[in-house]
């Protein structure tokens, strides 16, 4: 136990501390600097930041809800199938996000394979203002992940309980609501939360497929760093702290939801 806790506290705790320090005492300018809240003031006054916050939240919400709904449908459809079919559906899990984004770009960008094949693009999915391409990539990547989580709890114990319910006269729909749903609710909530937190911190996928404006929080931070290496450092750290805080907040809310759902 101890080494893992130590590493997490030192490295991860250090990272959070480092970000806090950067946001209140940007020191890369050289010379003794003093602690101030200028970066936070700049950040909160920036319309780009508020739009990035809204955009990140929107992506996280849409992608995680879509992935969760699809995952439930796929899992219910797949559970009667064997390992072979299930593993075929889990193929996208190990593919890196960036790679999926590259593939999506090559298919869907103007002049890409889709346009060559169809003659025209019915929908703009690359650099579109709604971030549809980004959402597509995350749904493609995260649905199989959630399906795996769900299938793990939809094992033989659940099947036995369903049989018991059916013997006592419950209709298939009732069985789904009364027997299946209570079992998958918790893993589904926690998995969806992880997906949401993940999308909230999205970085490389929006860099490839996302619009130039609004940015996600992480790319906003990158832009701030690149725009002015001196002042931008603190603003970037502050916006990343907001992203981190939001992710943890989502997690806490969902954990609470999962607990009350159990009671």
């Amino acid at each position: 136990m101890a080494p893992a806790v130590l590493v997490t506290v030192v490295l991860f705790g250090g990272a959070l501390l480092g970000a806090v320090k950067q946001s209140v005492e940007p020191s890369l300018g050289g010379g003794p600097s003093t602690w101030n809240l200028d970066s936070w003031r700049t950040l909160l006054a920036s319309p780009g930041f508020l739009d990035a916050l809204r955009f990140s939240a929107q992506l996280a919400l849409i992608a995680s809800v879509l992935a969760a709904s699809l995952a439930v449908a796929v899992a219910v459809a797949l559970r009667s199938h064997g390992r072979l079919v299930r593993s075929a559906f889990s193929l996208p899990v190990p593919v890196p996000h960036l790679l999926v984004a590259v593939v999506a770009f090559m298919w869907l960008s103007p002049g890409g394979l889709a346009q060559r094949a169809l003659g025209r693009l019915p929908l703009r999915l690359v650099h579109d203002p709604l971030g549809l391409g980004v959402i597509l990539v995350y749904v493609y990547k995260e649905t199989p992940f959630l399906v795996l989580l769900l299938l793990a709890v939809m094992g033989s114990t659940l099947r036995e309980r369903e049989e018991a319910a059916a013997v006592f006269g419950a209709s298939p729909f009732r069985v789904l609501i009364w027997v299946v749903w209570p079992v998958i609710r918790r893993p589904l909530l926690i998995g969806t939360m992880i997906v949401a937190a993940f999308v909230f911190g999205a970085f490389e996928v929006p860099l490839v497929l996302g619009p130039n404006y609004p940015l996600t929080l992480a790319s906003y931070a990158l832009q701030a760093q690149q725009k002015s290496p001196l002042r931008g450092q603190g603003v970037a750290a502050a916006s990343l702290l907001v992203a981190a805080g939001m992710s943890i907040l989502i997690a806490a809310a969902v954990m609470r939801l999962a607990r009350t759902a159990d009671a």
């Binding site: 997490t8 991860f12 990272a15 992880i194 937190a197 909230f200 999205a202 931070a221 750290a237 990343l240």
Partner: peptide, 14 residues
């Protein structure tokens, strides 16, 4: 916890 925080944030802090 590190799972939930954007890795870019962790990296920047480190």
């Amino acid at each position: 916890l590190p799972l939930l925080v954007p890795p870019f944030a962790t990296g920047t802090g480190l």
